[in-house]
Simulated assay, not measured.
Amino acid sequence: MSEKIVETQVDVELYDRQIRLWGLSTQQLILNSKVLVVNLNGLGTEIVKNLLLSGIGNITVLDEHEIEISDVNTYYNQFFIYNSDLSKVDTTKKYKRLDFAEKNMKDMNPRCNLQVFTDSSEKKLLDKEFLKNFDLVITTEILNNELLSKINLLTRDIKIPLYICQSFGLSSFIFVDYIQKESILEKPLDAKKDTAQIIREKEIIQKTEFPKIVSKNTNLVSKQLIDADDGTVKVLSKFLHKFIPFGELINRIDENIINSQFNKRQSRQILENTTVPYILNHLNSDFYISNQHFNKCKGIELPAVTAIMGAALVQDFISSLNNAKVLDNLLILDAQNDEMLILEI
């Protein structure tokens, strides 16, 4: 795959607001990142939009889907495909989504090295050498769990993080696999005002045996106090997060997972509402037998839902570059009940 050399210098004026939020070093990492996004559906569109606006340096979009020109209303959440573009083409011919979207994506961020592929999606996704070109892989609109599991095994083999996400009507989920990742939590304390808390922190550090298990997939590796020049004492905690592959996750999802992480009232509400069970059913069909609602919602994407999930995914990716904690490891949005759940499986 040919590569275009992009600027390695961050445009400080352009990204001033973002640099204030997460720092120049993180913005530099964003610029140098190489991300593969699979399928430019409604959710894929939101993800690419947020990546472009963040200042990402390299994006490759893989999508072989054709669009039905005569039914442009089905693309109301595809703002990279304009009605003005579609009105000028021969409606008797077949076109790919990327035939129209490529130019509009480039217009949103001309600084980004954008590449598109419109053929052999599955073949490329199962090609280890192709995947090695990227720092991150994001898949959308792939409902074949067996294929997704194969892709995940490849990304784990070459140590590349993977997001798998879907959106079905009012339901949506994001699966996250960073394989194994460290995160750092800094808590500043005033050296004069917080003396009692600083003493307690010292005692905790002395008595704690590291690494310490803090959750199912997370260990506290170390904890230390650091004196800063500004009169504060930083409590610096380092965590190690271990993620499980997609194939293992879908096999382990059951009612016990829900009950172990929520109280009885919350579990009952989650398992009896109208959206979450269908997401879980899609992931593990043995969990819920009835999937009538899910079948009706397949292929239906609502702009408000995809906007929330697209922003959540890109923010999580940026957090990973900043050594902050990332989603662990299944995020489910139930828009009907205004709930966003994180299941650690």
Rank of each mutant, 00 (worst) to 15 (best):
N256Y: 09
D227E: 13
L327M: 11
G231A: 05
A228Y: 05
T232N: 13
I270P: 07
H293N: 10
N323P: 00
A311V: 02
F262H: 11
P245D: 14
N256L: 09
Q269P: 02
Q292H: 11
K325V: 13
R252P: 03
D254L: 07
L313Y: 10
L236G: 00
P277H: 03
K264V: 07
L313I: 14
Q292R: 11
L271A: 10
Y288C: 05
E248C: 00
I244T: 13
N281D: 05
G299Q: 06
Q266K: 07
V305H: 05
S222A: 11
P277D: 13
I300G: 02
V233Q: 09
K234S: 12
E301C: 04
K325M: 11
I258Q: 06
I244K: 07
G310V: 04
L302Q: 13
F317C: 11
Y288Q: 06
A307M: 12
E255P: 08
L236C: 04
N291E: 10
A228I: 05
Q224L: 06
L313N: 13
I308P: 06
L220M: 10
D316L: 05
K325F: 05
I244H: 02
I318M: 03
S285D: 10
I318P: 00
Q224F: 00
K264D: 14
L327C: 10
S285G: 00
S260D: 15
T275L: 10
K264W: 01
S237T: 13
S222Y: 04
F317H: 13
N256M: 06
I308G: 03
S290W: 01
I253A: 07
C297P: 00
P303G: 09
Q266P: 06
P245C: 01
L240E: 14
N259Y: 10
Q269L: 11
V326H: 03
L240Y: 02
K234T: 14
N291D: 14
L225E: 07
K325R: 13
K296H: 08
T274I: 03
F287D: 03
N281H: 12
A307S: 15
I226M: 01
H282E: 09
N259R: 15
S267W: 07
D254N: 15
N291W: 06
L225V: 03
N322S: 12
G231Y: 03
D328M: 04
S285E: 11
